[in-house]
């Protein structure tokens, strides 16, 4: 088992490396380098830039060096000193800007995952066990419907419904009075009151997908001979269902974490933009629109790294629950 985990971790390293390259390419994509942009900016504001400052910054980011060296400098700074560079637009180090927002992104994604799993599994089971019943058709239709509605549309519609029907304005994760307050019980309650809507909005698409997968998996398992074997032992139908086919149908479901997680994080970003949540989404969009590339690149890098770690955890979980994978 330990060997399996180690092997997986070693496998993840090239992926991480590749992701960092992709993030760096994104940083490099806009024409010209940022100093040119920056200087144009400063010049337009009437400020003169000293030649020495420019030279010092060129030196710091290795802008005169070949591209691989720039990459090396960038990644080395991140790995050794946690230096993600500077946000030119906001004039602050990237690290100061992102951690808090990254934390909320992570929290929101985790809550969404829990919500998706907790709801999808029972519905999937019901749908499979009562195949071709009214409830199965309902679940199937709803699943297809929610798969067809993009996250941001769901967010907009939810906000419209909340404001037009319930007269509530939706947005943010806290009421104004709690935004800057320290954590307290009151703040927690306030958070819970705000967070459920984004969680549902982000989760519905993945929920629909998971219901379909759970249903298909379980239908597959229900027709396997070992179910007959267990029945021939005298086991009651409910115990049998949970102990055997459901247990086995969950395994492939765990492996879906590998793509549910990226989907949830993608959804979280775009929904956060619509609902103006204090997560990475709005910051990333703003950075991209302003071509604030160190900030944008760092965010993309960190989001991807989190996803890869999540996938790694799901791989390990799968091995824990399925001996066939463990013994390969």
């Amino acid at each position: 088992m330990l060997r399996f985990i180690l092997k997986r971790i070693v496998f993840a390293i090239p992926t991480l490396f590749a992701v960092s390259i992709i993030a760096f390419i994104i940083i490099q994509l806009p024409p010209g380098d940022y100093l040119t942009t920056l200087m144009a900016d400063w010049a337009s504001q009437g400020g003169a830039v000293e030649a020495g400052t420019v030279a010092a910054m060129r030196e710091r980011y290795g802008l005169d060096q070949p591209i691989y060296f720039q990459y090396y400098k960038w990644i080395w700074g991140i790995l050794t000193a946690g230096d993600f560079g500077i946000s030119f637009e906001l004039g602050k180090p990237v690290t100061e800007l992102i951690w808090n927002r990254l934390g909320f992104s992570l929290l929101l994604s985790l809550l969404t995952l829990c919500f998706v799993w907790a709801i999808a599994i029972p519905i999937g089971i019901l749908s499979a066990v009562r195949q071709y019943s009214i409830s199965d058709y309902m679940a199937t239709f709803l699943a297809f419907f929610f798969l067809a509605v993009p996250d941001f549309l769901m967010a907009l519609s939810a906000m419209y419904v909340m404001s037009a029907w319930f007269g509530q304005s939706v947005g943010g994760l806290f009421s104004p009075e709690y935004v800057d307050a320290g954590w307290s019980f009151g703040k927690l309650v306030d958070f819970a009151e705000h967070v459920w809507l984004p969680v549902v909005v982000i989760g519905l698409g993945s929920l629909a997908a998971l219901v379909r997968i759970m249903r298909a998996n379980l239908l597959d398992e229900l027709s396997k001979p070992y179910v007959t074997t267990a029945r021939a032992k005298g086991m009651s139908e409910l115990e049998l269902l949970i102990r055997y086919p459901v247990r086995l149908a969950l395994n492939p479901l765990i492996s879906t974490l590998g793509w549910i997680l990226p989907a949830v994080i993608s959804g979280e970003i775009i929904v956060s933009v619509v609902m103006s949540l204090p997560t990475t989404g709005p910051l990333l969009l703003r950075a991209l629109l302003a071509q604030d590339m160190y900030l944008a690149g760092s965010l993309i890098l960190l989001i991807s790294v989190l996803t890869i770690i999540g996938t790694l955890i799901s791989d390990i979980l799968l091995a824990l629950t399925d001996p066939r994978i463990r013994f390969q």
């Binding site: 396997k224 001979p225 070992y226 007959t228 074997t229 267990a230 021939a232 032992k233 005298g234 055997y244 247990r247 086995l248 395994n251 629950t321 399925d322 001996p323 066939r324």
Partner: peptide
């Protein structure tokens, strides 16, 4: 308990997990 049964495919007739 009173009547027990064994099947053709022992691999798929037993749970792998």
């Amino acid at each position: 308990k009173e009547i027990a049964m064994i099947f053709q495919e022992p691999m798929s007739s037993l749970s792998p997990v």
